[in-house]
Design a protein around this nucleic acid. Structure first.
Lengths: 270, 270
DNA sequence: TCTAGCTTCTCATATCATGAGACGCTGGTC
DNA sequence: GACCAGCGTCTCATGATATGAGAAGCTAGA
C-alpha cells in the first residue's frame, strides 16, 4: 500500500512510522479513525494508538469531535517557520497583487526543492475561475513554467544536478519528456527571458514565468501568471512577460537585492 | 535548556527527540550545525546525526550549502494540508483584501487552537508600516481581539474549557489578567457584536475583530483589523466593525453557510 | 604540515518501542 | 432490552531497536 522504507542507510523506525502516519492523514480527505490508520499502515492497533497520542501531544495531529484524527495546526506553524527564513512571501505579496490586477489572471510564487517546485503563494483575480493549485503543493519542474524559469537561470552544475533527478512524468501529451527537449527548452527560455508552460501540466492551462534573482543573480524563486489557454494567448505572452519582469524587479528591490538597473533585468539580457 | 518531556503518559522517546530537533531549528534564526543541535538538546553527536539524516530523508529538514541544518519545505506542505480541510483561507482571501482596501489597515484571519489563536492569513495595506505578525504564529486568546471574538460566541461548555486553560500572561499593563475581567469583557463583546483589543497585546496597537460563524452558528475563525492606536481610534471602531461584519458575512456565504439574512449577522443580534 | 573542530560511521549493549491480548465503551440490530 | 460488532484504551513480558562511546574522516585555518 504505502511505498516501503525509502532507500537511505539511516533508519529510525519510529520516525519513519510517525511520518507515515502524518502522510496518511495528509493524503486523506477526511479525518481517520485509529483502526483505519492502523490498517492502512499495517501497524498494530496499540502501536498506532501510541503514535497518535504522542503526535497529539505535540499537536502534530488533532482529534475531531468524534475522535477521529487529522493533521494538527502545529504543522502549520512549523511550515511557516520553514519558509520564514526566505521571507520572500511577505515581501512579494504586494507585487503579486499588482501583477494580478494588471493581468487579471492567477499569479503564483514558487520555490525549487529537489526536482519539484513548491508553491508558496497564490493570488487569484477577484472573479476568476478557481484554480485547483494549493499553497504548499508541488509539481515536477519539467512541466511547469516556474520550474523551467528557475532551472534556466541556475548555474550549470546545480541545474545539472536537478536535471539528473527529473523522472519525466507526462501529465499531458505536450509535456516535455526527454532531457534533450528540456535542455533545448531551457536554452529558449534563457534567450527570451521568460518560461512558458503550454498545457504541459494540464490541458487548457497556459502559464508564463520569470525567476526572482537574488543578490548573486541566482534564482531563488519564480513568479508565474496562469490562465486558460483561450485567454492567455500566444500574442499576449510578451505583454504579460513585461508585467512579470516589472513584478520580480519590484520584489528584488524589496528584498534588498540589486540597488539599481542590473539584476532582475538580467534575466532578459542574460 | 529545553523544557523537558511534556507531561502525558504516552511516550516515544525517538519522536519527542525528533520534534525537539525541529523545534530547535524552528526557533533558531540561522541554520544550525550538527554539533550545535547535539549540544542544545543534550543528545549524543551520533544520535543527533542519525535523527537529522532521517529527518532530511523525509525533507523535514534540509541542509544549506555549508552543511548546516534548517527546517525543510516538506513541513510547509504538511502545514498547508493541515489547514486545507478548513479551506477557509482561500475563500476568505478576496474578502479580506476588500476589507483592507476599505479600512487601509492590516487584516488577519485566525483560528482557535487550545487556548491560543493561530494566524492563518494576513493582508497588509499597500503602504502600511510592516506588522511583525507571522502567518502560522500564535498568541494567547485573552489578549487578542480575534481570541475574544471567537471565545465570546463559543457555546458555554467549549468556552469554559478554553477559559480553564488560559494562563493570563500579561504582555502589556492593559492585558486582561483575571477570569472575571475576561468574562465581563466577553459579555461586552457579545452585546456589541465585535471584540476589541486595546493595546492589550502590544503597546500602541489596537485591534478589532468579529467571528466567522459556520452553518451551526459556531465560530470557526475570526477576522480582525489592526493598526496603530492613533489611527484606529475609538470613534472609528463602529465603522470598522461594519466593514468587518460585511466581510465575514461574505466569507460565510462563500463557504456555503447561511443562505441569506440570518447567521453572520447573528453575531450582532445574539 | 599540523591541529582543532566538525561530521560520519561502526558496533556491542540494554533501553525502549513493540504488539498480543484483555477490557470497556458505543451504536446498531433483532 | 439484550446481543454483537467494531473501535478505542491500557498493561506488560519480550526482544528488536535505538543508543552512545569512540574511532575514523573531513576541512579549514595557522
Amino acid at each position: 500500500m504505502r511505498d516501503a522504507i525509502p532507500q537511505g542507510t539511516y533508519k529510525v523506525q519510529a520516525l519513519d512510522r510517525a511520518f507515515a502516519v502524518l502522510d496518511l492523514l495528509g493524503e486523506s480527505e477526511t479525518p481517520l479513525g485509529l483502526a483505519q490508520v492502523a490498517a492502512s499502515l499495517q501497524l498494530h492497533k496499540s502501536t498506532a494508538h501510541r503514535f497518535l497520542m504522542v503526535l497529539e501531544r505535540h499537536r502534530m495531529v488533532e482529534r475531531t469531535a468524534n475522535g477521529k484524527f487529522r493533521l494538527g495546526l502545529r504543522l502549520f506553524d512549523f511550515g511557516n517557520r520553514a519558509i520564514e527564513q526566505y521571507d520572500l512571501r511577505d515581501r512579494a505579496q504586494p507585487h503579486l497583487r499588482r501583477l494580478v490586477t494588471e493581468t487579471e489572471e492567477t499569479a503564483h510564487l514558487a520555490l525549487l526543492e529537489a526536482a519539484r517546485v513548491i508553491y508558496i503563494d497564490k493570488i487569484e483575480p477577484t472573479r476568476a475561475v478557481r484554480m485547483i493549485t494549493r499553497i504548499g503543493a508541488s509539481n515536477p519542474v519539467h512541466c511547469t513554467s516556474v520550474g523551467k524559469a528557475i532551472l534556466a537561470f541556475l548555474p550549470q552544475e546545480r541545474a545539472a544536478e536537478v536535471l539528473r533527478r527529473i523522472r519525466y512524468e507526462r501529465p499531458t501529451h505536450r509535456t516535455i519528456s526527454t532531457p534533450e527537449a528540456l535542455r533545448a527548452e531551457l536554452e529558449k527560455t534563457r534567450r527570451r527571458g521568460y518560461a512558458v508552460d503550454d498545457e504541459e501540466l494540464e490541458e487548457g492551462l497556459r502559464c508564463i514565468a520569470v525567476p526572482v534573482l537574488d543578490a548573486q543573480r541566482l534564482p531563488v524563486a519564480a513568479v508565474s501568471v496562469s490562465g486558460p489557454s483561450f485567454r492567455v494567448t500566444a500574442q499576449k505572452l510578451p505583454a504579460i512577460a513585461n508585467h512579470l519582469l516589472q513584478c520580480v524587479r519590484g520584489i528584488s528591490v524589496d528584498m534588498g537585492y540589486v540597488p539599481s538597473g542590473r539584476g532582475a533585468r538580467a534575466a532578459v539580457s542574460a
